[in-house]
Amino acid sequence: MHLEFKVEGGDFSNAGSASSQIKRVLKQLNIDPSVIKRVVVALYEAEVNIVAHAYRGRIDAYISSSGIVLKLEDEGPGIPDVGKAMTKGFSTASKEVREMGFGAGMGLPNISDNSDVFTIDTIVGKGTSLNIEIKFR
């Protein structure tokens, strides 16, 4: 099953709508709640990353009986140093973003901790693509 969502940069009021809808679908499929939790955490972080850092992006979710594959592609500044961005506590988020409760520097590490497969492709000045895979069993 394929689901797709569009994400607008800077639109914090709608951040989380993709993860919320995917959560709904997984619940209706009776997926183990602990697995759903990992999907929600990873996807929510990734979604907020697009909102906080990129101009716009899209999320494609592919659900099969073995698991969920999430592909997030954004048009944005890209990540100059992926190694640094994967360090817990490191953040480039603006003061404004931090004041809204985002940007604690846990985004990418948190996604990684909650997924079975996690890869980043990024081109500085162009954008970032994430591939997140979480298995159901």
């Binding site: 099953m1 209706q28 499929l29 009776n30 997926i31 659900i63 099969s64 009986s65 159901f136």
Partner: peptide
């Protein structure tokens, strides 16, 4: 159980 207990069928 919204659709089916079997995951493939549920999807």
């Amino acid at each position: 159980v919204k659709y089916d207990k079997d995951l493939d069928l549920a999807i």
